[in-house]
Amino acid sequence: MEQKIRVLVAKPGLDGHDRGAKVVARAFRDAGMEVIYTGLRQTPEQIVNAALQEDVDVVAMSILSGAHNHLFPRVMELLREKNMDDVLVIGGGVIPDEDIPGLKAAGIAEIFTPGTATGTTIEFIKNNLKRKA
């Protein structure tokens, strides 16, 4: 049986840059993962429904617009509503240090700020999957 880690790479919010998200997506692929990329400007509802239909193990969100304090917890809330507590959620992008504890309290497992080596993120995913991939 072939079991692959499936990751949804999502860009919530209104910012129009996805270079970073694409770099991360390629790094995940090169690490042997199956990456479903949603494209720009997704609502939390769209992200969570896509995660559900694609049955992913991980949701990786990147945000540059500054709306993370609203959008990340909203994604967590919707995941809980749909009983998707076994999905590992990580975040990245331009996120001030002082916001990180609040996001973690909301259920985001880890926040990776710009400059984090993709290898670090990949290791984190492999070590923290909530369901056996």
């Binding site: 997506a25 692929r29 690490a31 993962m33 990456v35 479903i36 990329y37």
Partner: peptide, 9 residues
Amino acid sequence: TGGAILGDR
């Protein structure tokens, strides 16, 4: 790598 970027969606 066996990995993939699934971009149709």
